[in-house]
Design a protein around this nucleic acid. Structure first.
Lengths: 202, 202
DNA sequence: TGCTATTGCGCAATTC
DNA sequence: CGAATTGCGCAATAGC
């Protein structure tokens, strides 16, 4: 009884901490990657690639390319699986590639067209404002995720604990039941004997 | 019985997927942040700040400073809490920072001393090799973490399911027990009556 | 339409 | 030394 209320409060929190959940994780990686292959190029064209300092950061820009390939999130894309096949998803890091670069035909359409589409200029105060806001949101979101994980673990732990108690209770009840059944069967025998005795005495 | 074996197999996996676990998450953020404040400076000195293309990426380098402050992982460090205090964690991106920046006294000691401690040259093939390896490790690790989370959720779900079954079993046993008790009490009464009848008839 | 929330990713620091 | 973890910022995008 006590433990019930204790557990339920935590579970309450736990339950409330899963809003949409399912759709993003799994579906995203697939859906958005197939969808991205159509849109991304335009996105790519209109962002960066012709920035003030040109090719700032090795991380961001090329990752766009990776992601576009739709294979980037495989656990061990390139060097881990030996050196066989899969020319895909290995073409990140133009920074390093500045020396030897493979302009895969997939990337070409995005690499040209340095259209002055007014990229959001990474020096722009507005850009920094957005970034900072997003960084805050990211921290918040991750914090939330961490708390969620902890709560799930707690929930699991408590459920396990509760489970053991329930199992013990079941064992107890079963035992009790056996005892009563035994007693009852004794009564039955007793009654039968008495009945028999009574009949024979008549 | 069936469900037991089914559950336990999953739980097996689940259990085995938590190696050290606790120490890293919570303790790290504290321990390493306090520890970092001593070491980080040297680290900072020996990395970047004067790279070939000067300040490539806004992300990596300055973040060192943030982290050093030991406050970066607070959910809402700067702008979120109004505009009061906490000059921390907003001072990344020297590029933009060139305009308005508060060089908090905490940061000064790290900002100076641009000693030429032989940074590992981001163009170095060895650097790229290291990075690529680490990136692979990171993907692997995160994949693992994701799987771990899923398993914890499954474990919790199955435990809950099992819990309900156990509770129902308990209800059933209790019911059964009550029935037997009732029967027994009836027998008792019956026996008592019979006994009384017997005595009175003598 | 614009902003926040999520998510995958790479980087660097640290741990193991 | 090298792999594993972890916090963080970036960019894409889902969601409202």
């Amino acid at each position: 009884m006590m433990s019930d209320s204790r557990v339920s409060s935590v579970i309450q929190e736990w339950v409330s901490s899963f809003p949409g959940q399912v759709h993003s994780q799994t579906l995203n990686s697939v859906a958005s990657n197939s969808a991205a292959s159509t849109n991304q190029m335009t996105q790519m064209d209109m962002i960066s690639y012709g920035q003030s300092q040109g090719m700032i950061r090795g991380g961001g820009d090329d990752r766009g390319a990776e992601q576009m390939m739709g294979l980037s999130y495989l656990p061990y894309p390139p060097s881990c699986l030996g050196s066989a096949a899969s020319p895909v998803s290995t073409n990140h890091h133009q920074s390093h590639a500045s020396t030897q670069q493979d302009f895969s035909p997939f990337l070409l359409p995005t690499l040209r067209a340095p259209v002055t589409k007014r990229s959001i200029s990474k020096d722009s105060a507005e850009y920094r404002l957005r970034r900072e806001r997003n960084n805050i949101a990211v921290r918040k979101s991750r914090d939330k995720a961490r708390r969620r994980i902890v709560m799930t673990q707690q929930r699991a732990g408590q459920l396990q604990e509760e489970n053991q108690k329930l199992q013990m209770r079941i064992a107890q009840l079963t035992q009790e039941l056996d005892t009563l059944k035994h007693i009852l069967s004794q009564r039955h025998l007793q009654a039968a004997e008495e009945g028999a005795a009574g009949q024979s005495s008549i």
